[in-house]
Design a protein around this nucleic acid. Sequence first.
DNA 1: GGGACGATTGAA
DNA 2: TCAATCGTCCCA
Length: 175
Amino acid sequence: MSQNRLTAEFYQRDVLLVAPELLGKQLVRALPDGLHLKHLITEVEAYKGTGDLGCHASKGKTERNKVMFEQGGLVYVYLIYGMYWMLNVVTSTEDNPEAVLIRGISEYSGPGRLTKHLQIDKSFYAEDLITSPRIWIEDIGIQPQFETTPRIGIDYAGPYWANIPWRFVIKNNLV
DNA sequence: GGGACGATTGAA
DNA sequence: TCAATCGTCCCA
């Protein structure tokens, strides 16, 4: 465990505040054998509310996305293309469906690749990052510079939502 | 019950 | 450029 684990107060804010602040934070995955995998978060995307046509919540609450409607600090995982698990962090408060997609961590680019490495699957659905013994995020005092770009792979959301700059990436090859 | 599709990846 | 691969969602 860590004294610097992020708390409920960190997560229960607007996703557009939380997403960029997750850059440079340390994602920790404690494996069953006791090994702790530690990686800095390098790339994220924000998904905000029912009005955001790129956000799963825009279709209303379903079995898959219902955890997004809970309070911030929970994990939202779902399967994409039949083979990759996407790791998301729920933000904001109850009934405000927002989440941050973790798209990249140090040494591993791509949301599907990083979950494979961290051994994250459906069993992490609704896992509580504030209390879980097997996954959490720590503040290690890094506040990297970052840049913003449109989000990846959501052309179906239409030009406005597909182009809004809610992807946040650490600059250069820092860390 | 059936069909279309996806917040991806890696190989051709 | 394209196949892999399957849970979810929507329609019948």
